[in-house]
């Protein structure tokens, strides 16, 4: 476990969100400290995406308080979240295939030199950023189309870091990746932690969660259903919290296998 400072960089206190008749989130609590990787898990429809979107400013919250470095703030638009220092990397990558890596990293916030795009500074900064993150890609001047899925994912995450955020939200970053690419992305998540960023990681993959997260927050039916330190919690306990029962398909299956092994 890494050292975690006392004041959370981002805290949600009793956050609720309603869409018409659907209560998507009820009294949700969440704390993210600098240098902490918080995994957000839960079944489909548990409210993970909604929670992330409230932080990212896509859906303003109905009730509760969002605290940023200990002070209450209001996040009503994506712009507000970006202004505070929240960067979101969505599941479907938002990269332009035809632009090169540098162009994508700086898309929408190009560096200018006398009103003209400053390719030299952008390339220099991009190379520095990628090298501090130990990201290996063939060239920073290669079109995104030429990169593998894993390389695109790390570029997308690196892009989130250009704005110097304090909290990075990763929505299923490894969902579509192979074994090696997943490892690359998990390495990158660890490097974000080393840079003292707060990371919120949404994942269905317990192996990934166990591998990089410090804390697991479980959401079930829009409510908190436990928060566990990863090191001391077993796989089954987390599954139980996700499904809401100690007797579930996963534990039954595990029990059956144990019984068979015992024979």
């Amino acid at each position: 476990m890494v050292h975690v400072s006392a004041t959370p960089v981002l805290a949600l206190r009793g956050v609720s969100k309603r869409f018409g008749a659907v209560q998507a989130l009820t009294d949700v609590e969440l704390e993210v400290h600098p240098g902490e990787v918080v995994a957000l898990v839960g079944d489909n429809g548990a409210g993970k995406s909604t929670l992330v979107k409230t932080i990212a400013g896509v859906h303003p919250i109905d009730e509760g308080v969002i605290e940023w470095e200990g002070k209450p703030v209001s996040i009503n638009r994506p712009h507000d979240a970006q202004g505070l220092g929240v960067a979101t990397v969505y599941q479907d990558l938002a990269l332009c295939d035809n632009l090169d890596v540098v162009g994508n990293l700086y898309l929408g916030r190009e560096l200018l030199h006398r009103g003209v795009i400053d390719e030299v500074s952008m390339e220099k900064n991009a190379r520095e950023l990628l090298s501090t993150l130990s990201i290996r890609i063939p060239s920073v001047r290669i079109p995104i189309a030429s990169l593998s899925g894993g390389q695109r994912q790390v570029v997308a995450i690196a892009r989130a870091l250009i704005g110097d955020p304090k909290v990075v939200i990763l929505d299923e970053p490894t969902a579509a990746l192979g074994v090696e690419q997943t490892a690359q992305v998990l390495d990158l998540v660890e490097r974000l932690r080393e840079r003292n960023l707060g990371v919120i990681l949404i994942s269905h993959n317990m192996a990934d969660v166990k591998a990089v997260a410090d804390t697991v927050h479980v959401l079930r039916l829009g409510k908190n259903n436990g928060s566990f330190p990863v090191k001391t919690t077993s796989h089954e306990e987390i599954i139980a919290a996700i499904t809401g029962a100690t007797d579930n398909a996963v534990t039954r299956r595990a029990g059956r296998r144990d019984a068979e092994a015992a024979k």
């Binding site: 990558l93 938002a94 990269l95 332009c96 035809n98 162009g103 898309l107 929408g108």
Partner: peptide, 13 residues
């Protein structure tokens, strides 16, 4: 170029 390469990516940027 960005809009030509990916509308959604351009919008998110």
């Amino acid at each position: 170029f960005a809009v030509g390469g990916g509308i959604e990516a351009a919008r998110r940027a």
